[in-house]
Amino acid sequence: MANQQVEFKFPKGGIFTIIIIVLGIIFISKSAVTIGPGEGGVIFERFGDGINTETTYGEGFHIVAPWNKMIVRKVRQQSISDEMNVLSVNGLEVKVSGTIWYEPEFSNLGKLIKTKGEDYERELLDPAINAAARSVVGRYTPEQLYSSKRDVIEQEILDEVSTVLKDQYLIVKRVLVEDVKLPPTIRTAIETKLKQEQESLEYEFRLAKAKKEAERQKIDAEGKATANRILSASLTDKILQEKGIEATLKLAESNNSKVVVIGSGKNGMPIILGNQ
């Protein structure tokens, strides 16, 4: 039997269809962008004017022309922590560590990236925080920095940073000064002084409390003395006789008592000789 060869004929237009499918897959893979929760995106137009500042894309699935690029950044509130060496008002070097909460303006994300670049935290936020911290800390003594001025310092840094970043499309929400590190000798001196001040306040409190108690006792004694004087002035001989007679009658009415009264005692009061 002669060998029979089977000839496979490729359908007309099949190659063109395969090419279209491959190109479609490449187009979708290059063009599909998913923006996650808390993120925003702006388009870099490679053959246009660069960053498109008019539109910020929100969360979800987006199709972008393959020759363009979607730049995705976080637009929810974020935080950065930093530690820096600054000088106090008297020239002493202190180390301040803190945390800043910030977020970019969603609608102006394109303008922010176009003017400050994708790494806008390093280009814009860090210099503003450092300048504000040095300016504010330089107004206070180490003792104020260490103890009682934390809230005021935080608010002043926030105000200065907000002023510097005004119209820069980046919003600072909060500043927290977490720690102020002083040289050991200065820190020990401040802690000793604060302890002595606390002990002094406690001593003054005890003195004030004792003084109030003495005044209370004095007022109480004066009140009792006045009451006794009023009572003594009101007790005449006649009133005393009446009170004595009333007491004697009550005693005589008792079932468990026998009272014998003979004559009268001094001032006319009955004399009780015996009872059971």
Rank of each mutant, 00 (worst) to 15 (best):
Q241T: 07
M70Y: 12
K166W: 13
A252K: 00
E197G: 05
L112P: 01
D167L: 05
G48L: 09
A131Q: 12
F16W: 09
Y169C: 08
E123P: 01
K195F: 09
K114E: 00
G263P: 02
N68T: 07
E121I: 11
K258H: 01
A210H: 12
Q168A: 03
E199N: 06
E246C: 02
K266R: 07
I51C: 04
P142G: 00
E215I: 04
N52D: 15
K111A: 13
R122P: 00
N256L: 03
S29G: 06
I186F: 11
T236E: 14
E156G: 01
K209M: 12
P11W: 14
F106M: 01
G274P: 01
G41E: 04
I272Q: 01
K181S: 13
V161C: 01
V42M: 09
T192V: 10
R122V: 05
Y102A: 02
N68W: 10
D82G: 12
G24N: 03
D126M: 11
E197S: 00
Q168D: 03
A133L: 13
K258P: 00
S232K: 10
N130A: 08
E178A: 15
P142S: 02
E154C: 08
E45K: 15
G265H: 01
S162D: 08
V96P: 02
K211L: 07
G24W: 04
L23P: 01
A210G: 05
I63Q: 07
K12V: 14
A247S: 09
L240R: 05
V136L: 06
K209G: 10
I245L: 14
N255Q: 08
F16G: 06
P270K: 05
H62D: 13
P270M: 07
A189E: 04
I26D: 01
S257Y: 01
K149I: 01
T163W: 07
G98S: 11
K116Y: 14
I19E: 02
A131S: 09
Q198P: 05
E253C: 06
G274M: 05
S135Y: 04
M1G: 15
V75R: 03
E156F: 02
S200T: 04
P184S: 08
G98H: 04
K9S: 13
V161D: 02
T226F: 10
Y169Q: 06
I19G: 06
V164G: 06
D220P: 10
R122K: 11
H62P: 09
K166G: 06
E154V: 10
V175G: 03
G40Y: 08
E59I: 03
F61G: 04
K266Q: 14
E215R: 14
T248A: 00
G263T: 06
G274S: 09
D220S: 04
E45Y: 09
P127Y: 06
S88Y: 08
L194H: 01
E215Q: 08
L235V: 03
V180C: 04
K30Q: 00
I80D: 12
T226K: 15
S254D: 08
I28F: 12
G58P: 14
L176V: 08
D49V: 09
Q198A: 12
W101D: 13
M269R: 11
A214D: 10
G265D: 07
S135N: 15
R76I: 06
K193A: 12
I25E: 00
D237I: 11
